[in-house]
């Protein structure tokens, strides 16, 4: 799976700015995941080859960090915070509501491939709990209405 010219260019830029080839790995994985939505094996092998580092090292790092996906995920990913401050303000209730609404359990993807629901650890939004990160946006002080509107939007996209 050869990368596109644009992605190769982006990776070359990352390498040129990095102290070592290994230290280019995490920014490179971010760039690859942005393009593919997740990190298929073939992509990880390609990254290892481009950076000239062991393939096992790429696998190792990709599986250590929770935001790197080594399995396919939906077009949109919901990270619902479950940690104490959010839990005290109803994160478990929110999880139940989302789960019912989407027809999936936490950790699963809707059958249309649109939305994956995941559990996040503290999102640094404790003062505006309950909170969730959806793709690149944070949603705070969650209410049923906010969730309904958001899901509607995500489903249409």
């Amino acid at each position: 799976m050869p990368f596109s010219v644009e992605l190769r260019e982006k990776i070359n830029q990352i390498i040129s700015k990095s102290e070592t080839r290994q230290s280019a790995l995490i920014p490179t994985l971010h760039a690859v995941q942005r393009e593919y939505g997740w990190l298929p094996n073939e992509c990880m092998s390609e990254v290892a080859e481009i950076l000239d580092i062991p393939p096992a090292s790429v696998q190792n790092v990709a599986t250590f960090y929770t935001m790197f996906f080594t399995k396919p995920v939906g077009k949109h990913v919901i990270w619902l915070c479950r940690t104490l401050s959010c839990a005290l303000r109803g994160a478990e209730h929110v999880e139940h509501y989302l789960s019912e609404k989407l027809g999936i359990h936490t950790g699963e993807t809707t059958t249309d491939g649109k939305i994956t629901l995941l559990e996040a650890e503290c999102l640094a939004s404790c003062g505006t709990a309950p909170a969730m990160l959806v793709d690149d946006e944070l949603y705070e002080n969650l209410t049923r209405k906010k969730i309904d509107e958001l899901i509607e939007k995500l489903k249409k996209d």
Binding site: Q22, I26, S57, Y65
Partner: peptide, 23 residues
């Protein structure tokens, strides 16, 4: 440098390992 989801990287030496491209 943008991390990728790991509380432990707030520990100062884990943070350094992470910038170096490791776990």
């Amino acid at each position: 440098f943008v991390g990728a989801g790991a509380y432990i990287c707030g520990e100062e030496t884990a943070l350094l390992e992470s910038i170096e491209g490791k776990n």
